[in-house]
Write a protein that binds this DNA or RNA. Sequence first.
RNA 1: GGUCGGUUGGCCGAGUGGUUAGGCAGUGGUCUGCAAAACCACGUACGGCGGUUCGAAUCCGCCACCGACCUCCA
Length: 487
Amino acid sequence: MDKNLIIYNSLTRKKEKFEPIKSPYVGLYVCGPTVYGDAHLGHARPAITFDLLYRYLKHLDYKVRYVRNITDVGHLENDADDGEDKIAKKARLEQLEPMEVVEYFTHRYHENMEALNVLRPNIEPKASGHIIEQQLMAEKIIEHGFAYEVNGSIYFDVEKYNEKHDYGKLSGRKLEDLQSNTRQLEGQDEKKNPFDFALWKKAAPEHIMRWPSKWSEGFPGWHLECSTMSTKYLGEQFDIHGGGMDLLFPHHECEIAQSTAANGKESVKYWMHNNMITINGQKMGKSLGNFITLEELFSGNHKLLEKPYSPMTVRFFILQAHYRSTVDFSNEALQAAEKGLERLLKAGKILQQLIAEKESTVNIDELKANCYQSINDDLNSPILIAHLFEAVRFIYLIKEGKEKINAKDLEQLKNLYQTFVYDILGLQEEQSDNSEFTSDLIDMILTLRLEAKKNKDFSTADKIRDELTKKGITIKDTKDGFEWEQN
RNA sequence: GGUCGGUUGGCCGAGUGGUUAGGCAGUGGUCUGCAAAACCACGUACGGCGGUUCGAAUCCGCCACCGACCUCCA
């Protein structure tokens, strides 16, 4: 298998050839969700983007360890001293144990991901399960002189760090600019500088998520969990770190600083960031309150939705845009995606019925090369899909006898479809909720209609078709029979 | 205000110095008892103004508009 993958590295702002640190092993870490609410369309973007990457890396025969965390502690509502953890806040509001909230939304997240055909990562660590490791990492950073303690809390000393290293290299910021631009929040008097960030926070008395430490009863800072868990499972240096663009600063910038401060070296070779999903041109997000949850999307139960959209439609919709572009939500776009996907999948079924001839009039080798070329180019899924629609055209032309295909090419085309449509893009047929009984019944009715047609009783035939159409069954008459499908 | 990115045909969305992206919608045709599906044909778009060039949507400059990050965020 030729390994010619090129990916855009946010750190260098260039496309680079992907070369693992220790081929064939690849370490992949992606920032997962904070489980204090249902996943929305925005969460589907990184999940699907890095699912595509994971699937393709595996296809290239790399041995991938994919780690995606669950953030269940350490997210402050704001950065003020009495900041309350998001999970704890939700728990207090609903009179639940924090872990109850975490379990509930983690399960729902998994259900959504499964519906979207997003593969499970190899390891899905939780921040709460790595408190000791986080404390050890904080200690290491203190030992190296890059953090300081105030009143039982530990803060990262950005200014000190920046003397030897480059804080801001990922996000392209300069410390002087941050100095003047970082927002001053109340209750931050503890910090030497407003841009310093917490590694450990002493818990206020009413704070329910707390762990003992040598400094205080408290909880770890948000940025620390990713550094700790990626190091633990992928080593001090690993290949790819992914996440949403909105995490680039400060989260990933802080991660770089922490790892470098603790281990003395850069931890990540390639940083990858997916762009945002927008709605009416604005970022979809929790804070703006303009999000549509995946649950709502699948059920159609939201005032902005004209109809429900299946998980595969959502997946295809996202894959039709390149991951580094924004993609704007609209009913029209979703419906276009729905139809396009239907065409692509239907052709896949017809492909299985094609009959090989002696010779080929279609160039499958070229098509295959084009598919690889597009996916290799920084996971250009929209171009890949455009090429797959070429395959769709071939399939129908062959079916109609306007083009021919030999056995070897037919086998190749089937492989191509399997590889790219199902394995790499991760698209699949929606499960039909038809029972065998219902299917048989419809077949029976249509057989009767066929007889009516033979007897030139077109009014009966049309009546049956009209009635079934009303029930959402589309009928297609073929030369000597019929086909049908449920909408 | 600082940093970064975007502006493509009715809609979505690629691309990038000279060649049809693709999907959806639309129009005409073929097929069909009629449909549906499919196939064929058709749209010649790149925010504005300058510049570089034989040639720019693609490079450069200015302007306009939109957005992201700078605070939690996928």
